[in-house]
């Protein structure tokens, strides 16, 4: 199974090789979607983990033991249908192909492909796309 997390690193462990341990000790496949980590500062990482359910539970415990704040809900893009006019500009900047137009020109969203890069958020001239945590 695959889950997305928002991890908040306390300053003390911002230099710890957390991702290494997730791979070696829990046999998980990490995909770092976004991260902002600097030595000595509180950091934030949006992380997608793929692995077996029990390994994910164990990894969550490990992260908590490291004094890390984890919120499994993580982030998602929120699309407002009422504001959207199906112009398709968002699709032109979505490198992952999570946003595309169907044969009739209507917007289609595939959230599994989204890496939360946020380029669409500022591109949308209707401000119809938001990143929600």
């Amino acid at each position: 199974m695959r889950k997305r997390y928002k991890l908040t690193f306390p300053p003390a462990i911002s230099r710890e090789p957390i991702v290494y341990h997730l791979v070696k000790d829990f046999d998980l496949m990490p995909n770092i979607l976004r991260s902002q980590i600097q030595p000595g500062c509180e950091g934030v990482m949006l992380l997608e983990l793929t692995g077996t359910a029990d390994k994910l539970v164990a990894a969550e415990q490990y992260l908590r033991d490291q004094k890390m704040v984890i919120s499994p809900a993580a982030a998602d893009i929120e699309h407002n249908d009422d504001l959207c006019v199906d112009c398709g500009l968002c699709a032109s900047v979505c490198r992952q192909g999570a946003l595309s137009l169907d044969a009739l020109g209507a917007l289609v969203i595939n959230r599994d492909l989204c890496v939360l890069c946020e380029v669409c958020v500022s591109t949308c001239p209707r401000r119809a796309i938001k990143l929600v945590f």
Partner: peptide, 13 residues
């Protein structure tokens, strides 16, 4: 090159 429009076909229709 990935393409995208800025003119809405569903609205035009």
């Amino acid at each position: 090159v990935r393409t995208g429009g800025v003119s809405s076909m569903p609205k035009a229709r």
